Amino acid sequence: MDENTAFPGASDESKAEYILSNVAEVVERILTFVPTKSLLKMTCVCKLWRNCARRVLRVQQNMTWVSASGPSNCDGHALCPKLADEVENIYILPKTVLVMVDSETFNGQDCCYKQKKARKSHHGPDSIEELNGLFPKGCDIMGVATPGIVLTPTGSHSGAPKEFQEGEAGYAIMFPRMEGVDIRPFHFCKNTISEANLVEAGLVNNTDLRVVLLFGYDAFKPGAARFLNQVLEPLARSKVLIAGGHVENVFSPKRKCCDRGSYGVVGLTLSGPKIQGASVLLEQDVSSAKAAEAIIQRLKAANLPERNTLGFMFACVGRGHNYYNNQRNVEADTFRKVFPNIPLFGFFGNGEIGCDRIVKEDYNLCDMDSDGLQHGYTTVMTLVHLG
């Protein structure tokens, strides 16, 4: 039956109207080309479009990211206007967002954690509110500021990652709701750490837990090391990959549980049977590109799928070009040489957390105590596969 038989005497306009009002397959196909913000508005058109839009959102399960480096032409951090523009055009509905920015130019004075005074003070509360306002209600946003940033340019998995040990830089990794993957944020300070709260956060007695990204703040204050061990000890004994380090401050979400200047940890738990991970430790004696490549090649031997996989690099602020005879971007370039199609993110911080470990179906891993997870003048290089 041709279209003239199906719609006798009908105009092309009325035919199109009928199809867009009644043929779900056509509507759903069209909506796959619509960015998420516009797609959400289209759910108000009619019941058919609402159902089609929901199905489209359910299948858009690949994470995405936005990154930026400065200096910015506006009053806020360089990431804020870039993110505002790009969020209009993304094709996922963010459920969890991990934001990392340089602490030198992002001044979070209104957050509940004390921060060293930034040399540039025109960033801060407005930037924080602007970031939080970009994402839908119910989206979990975790934001940290660190001495340096490692990022991959927006829009390309094969883009060359860059190390920014100074200057304005930041990124936001956006995770949608994914089948078989549960990503949850957590925060503990000395007022909230307890066995019951660790269990509730999914850090203890969670058989589906695969990866923990963990970031400590104010880690060098009296009592902070003992506090951190309360979190790390059960994780060190588990079949879980732990990676992260110590940051300058946490600016999102706002917390009222701890006093200004109190130490604590924040992070993300990644649970689910589809998640796999691997990490290696570049120790203090790794100070050449050749030596770095030999260690990173061990990640390749883990044989993780590269599709829907992220790389993380958590390095000591004392490494980078200072460690490699003024050669810049050594570790990021080496990672890209070994994994040309995996984006790399991370930071230069005040201490590193992690070890050599592989988390797969057969759970090949190295046993490690909590002290063996904490390092200085090292780099933790990590792969996380989201299924």
Score class of each variant (00 low, 15 high):
1 M>L: 15
5 T>N: 12
12 D>Y: 12
28 E>R: 05
30 I>C: 14
30 I>G: 05
31 L>K: 07
33 F>P: 00
35 P>E: 11
38 S>Q: 09
38 S>I: 00
44 C>D: 11
46 C>T: 00
46 C>Y: 02
47 K>M: 10
51 N>M: 10
52 C>D: 06
54 R>D: 04
57 L>Y: 08
58 R>S: 13
58 R>L: 15
58 R>Q: 13
59 V>I: 11
60 Q>V: 02
72 S>N: 10
73 N>Q: 15
79 L>C: 01
81 P>I: 07
81 P>D: 10
84 A>F: 05
95 K>N: 03
99 V>T: 01
101 V>T: 06
106 F>C: 08
112 C>A: 14
113 Y>K: 11
114 K>F: 11
117 K>D: 04
121 S>L: 14
121 S>F: 09
122 H>A: 06
123 H>S: 13
125 P>Q: 11
128 I>E: 07
133 G>T: 01
136 P>M: 08
136 P>L: 12
157 H>Q: 12
157 H>G: 00
158 S>C: 06
158 S>I: 02
161 P>K: 12
165 Q>H: 10
170 G>L: 04
177 R>T: 09
178 M>V: 04
178 M>R: 13
179 E>F: 07
185 P>K: 13
191 N>I: 04
192 T>H: 03
195 E>P: 02
195 E>F: 07
196 A>M: 11
197 N>M: 08
199 V>Q: 14
199 V>Y: 11
200 E>S: 14
207 T>Q: 15
209 L>Y: 00
210 R>D: 01
212 V>H: 07
220 F>E: 13
225 A>Y: 07
227 F>L: 07
235 L>T: 01
246 H>K: 12
246 H>S: 09
247 V>N: 05
250 V>F: 02
253 P>I: 10
255 R>I: 02
259 D>P: 00
261 G>V: 05
261 G>H: 08
262 S>D: 13
264 G>H: 06
265 V>E: 08
273 P>M: 12
275 I>Y: 03
284 Q>I: 06
284 Q>A: 15
293 E>P: 00
293 E>H: 02
302 A>S: 08
305 P>T: 08
316 C>E: 04
317 V>A: 14
319 R>C: 05
320 G>A: 11
320 G>N: 05
324 Y>L: 04
326 N>G: 02
328 R>A: 14
329 N>R: 09
331 E>T: 06
332 A>C: 04
336 R>I: 03
338 V>G: 01
345 F>H: 02
349 G>E: 09
349 G>W: 06
357 R>N: 11
358 I>Q: 12
361 E>P: 00
362 D>K: 14
364 N>F: 08
368 M>F: 05
370 S>D: 08
371 D>N: 15
375 H>M: 11
375 H>A: 12
376 G>S: 14
383 L>V: 00
